[in-house]
Amino acid sequence: MAVNHSDFDDLPMESSDSTWYKRTLSGILTKTKDKKPTPDGLWEKCKRCKEVVPSKEWLANHCVCPSCHYHERIGSAEYFEILFDDGNFTELNANLSSGDPLNFVDSAPYTDRVVVAQKKTGLKDAVRTAHGVINGQALCVACMDFAFIGGSMGSVVGEKIARAIDHSLATKTPFLMISKSGGARMMEAAFSLMQMAKTSAKLALLAKAGIPYISLMTNPTTGGVTASFAMLGDFNIAEPEALIGFAGPRVIKETIGKDLPKGFQSSEFLLEHGFLDFIVDRTELKATLSRLLSHIQD
């Protein structure tokens, strides 16, 4: 479950300013000579409190540190495993892959970047969608993968979310969106931007049909994702200490010319300012979702 931090060095997203992984206060300041290597596969070390936990226990705890409750970043595979009963689900549109409508080239062609990301992650793009059952209740889930180009939203992300909402509409199944994204994918420029309108329009139809929509925000949820589907839940919820915001922290810092207050744009900050219904620990997620849905599903 170790996250490779070099994955996040080059994030081509609108709000990409990577501040959230520069842990200047705690964490990765250990000098190489002070590092204590552990054999792979047996132990996990919490990135924050350095507690060493047996891998089995770490996974059973959904990659949340039992000691300090630090939520390690996980992907769609882990969320589907955590949520769906017996890990059973049916994936939707699993083979949708990105086009290159603008023939975009920066330091490398966009098509190459997509292929590299696909090889590295084994994923087709930055979101996976599936339906299944959680504690006996049917649920349609779209879950973003940060490992794929920073969870950035291009046409595939927008289209898969739109089609998942269509599935919820057709089957009258509640919809859960798990966001984890740096925002719109720059290499699809205005095509990315319009995914915000597309997904929001679909959510309007879901709302009209009276089908519940739960939006779970995880670290990080920023940019165009925050300014569209992530903030439109009947219930907006978040994992603890996630970075959630519209503009990235560096952009704001540069604009106002001051350091940002501690905890600014954290889940706790958003809860305090009235934009979240509640914060949920990952170990409580499945039970909490079931309890919430039990009030509104017949």
Binding site: L96, A162, K198
Partner: peptide, 9 residues
């Protein structure tokens, strides 16, 4: 707006 985007199967 739903038709906007370029994807391939």
């Amino acid at each position: 707006f739903s038709a906007m985007g370029v994807v391939q199967e």
